[in-house]
C-alpha cells in the first residue's frame, strides 16, 4: 500500500509541474513514513532477536521428537554468545550422553565420546536433521541471519500483535522465499514463524508458547517445529534454567571444549 502511494507521487511530480513544491513535500513525507515503518519492523525483529540470545545465554532444553511410529526425548544444555559461538552438550538419553557440538563462525564440530572422535560437519551434511529432529544443522549454525539476511515489513498490526513478513535480501544465502512472523510487542517474542518456499508455499512452522521472563529478557519456553508436508512429525523443545548475560567461560568456545566438557 505504502509503496503504491510513493510511485503515485513520483508520477505526479513528473507530470504536474505546478504542484512541484507540494508533491516534493508529499514525497519527503512518504519516504519519511516508510523509513519509519521499516525501522519499526527492523526494531521489532532486532528486539526479538535480542530476546532470543541476549549478550549470551545458557539453557537446558528437553527435546521431544515425534515421528510416525515413535517418539524420542533428548535433554541437552547449551551455551551461546552472540551469533557466532555456541556449544551444546547432550545429557540424555544415556547412549548419547556426552556428545558435544561446537559451532564457531560458520563451522561446526561434533565430539562423540563413544568413538572418541571429533568430527567436522562437512557442507554436505549441513542440511541433515540435527540429532534426528526437524531442525537442520544449518538452522543451528545460521541462527544469525534473521536480522542480517532479511528485509522486514509489517503486514498487519492488531493491538500488540504485529505480523512481519521477512523477505530475504537479494544476496542473502537463504533458501526461504519468505518468513512470516507473529510477534507480541509487549514481550517482543514470536508465537509463530511460518517458512515459505519461493513459490509462496508453506514448508514448515515454528510455534512458540509459554513466554517467561528471565532477567530483562522474555523468551517462549515451549517451541514446536512442524513440517507442513508431514503433519504427524514434529519436534517439541522445552526450555529450562535459562540464564542470560552471565559469565560464560570462553573455554566453551574452543575446539578443546568438545572433549573437555563432554564429561
Amino acid at each position: 500500500m505504502v509503496g503504491d502511494k510513493v510511485t503515485l507521487e513520483i508520477h505526479r511530480e513528473e507530470t504536474l509541474e505546478e504542484e512541484d513544491s507540494v508533491s516534493k513535500f508529499l514525497l519527503i513525507f512518504f519516504i519519511f513514513t516508510i523509513s519509519l515503518v521499516a525501522n519499526e519492523a527492523q526494531d521489532i525483529i532486532k528486539k526479538l532477536d535480542e530476546n532470543m540470545r541476549g549478550e549470551n545465554v545458557s539453557m537446558k532444553m528437553t527435546m521431544r521428537v515425534v515421528s510416525l511410529s515413535h517418539e524420542r526425548t533428548m535433554k541437552m544444555q547449551s551455551w551461546s554468545e552472540g551469533t557466532k559461538k555456541s556449544f551444546t552438550k547432550i545429557l540424555y538419553p544415556p547412549k548419547d550422553r556426552g556428545i558435544t557440538f561446537l559451532s564457531l563462525e560458520n563451522q561446526m564440530w561434533q565430539y562423540v565420546p563413544k568413538i572418541e572422535r571429533i568430527i567436522k560437519i562437512p557442507p554436505s551434511m549441513m542440511l541433515q536433521n540435527w540429532m534426528g529432529s526437524d531442525i537442520t544443522n544449518d538452522d543451528i549454525v545460521k541462527q544469525s541471519s534473521i536480522v542480517e539476511d532479511y528485509e522486514p515489513k509489517i503486514i498487519k498490526k492488531k493491538n500488540t500483535l504485529v505480523t512481519i513478513e521477512l523477505i530475504p535480501k537479494e544476496d542473502a544465502a537463504v533458501v526461504w522465499g519468505k518468513i512470516i512472523i507473529n510477534i507480541d510487542t509487549t514481550t517482543y517474542t514470536s508465537n509463530r514463524d511460518v517458512f515459505y518456499d519461493e513459490d509462496g508455499e508453506e514448508v514448515r512452522q515454528f510455534i512458540y508458547e509459554k513466554v517467561k521472563k528471565f532477567g530483562k529478557y522474555y523468551i517462549p519456553t515451549y517451541w514446536r517445529v512442524q513440517s507442513s508436508s508431514k503433519k504427524d512429525n514434529f519436534t517439541e523443545i522445552i526450555l529450562e534454567d535459562v540464564e542470560y548475560d552471565t559469565e560464560i567461560s570462553q573455554h566453551y568456545f574452543k575446539k578443546s571444549a568438545l572433549k573437555r566438557f563432554s564429561r
Partner: peptide, 12 residues
C-alpha cells in the same frame, strides 16, 4: 556418524 532406524543419533 549417522542416524538409526528411529532417527536417533548413531556413531561408531
Amino acid at each position: 556418524i549417522g542416524g538409526a532406524s528411529d532417527n536417533s543419533f548413531v556413531a561408531d
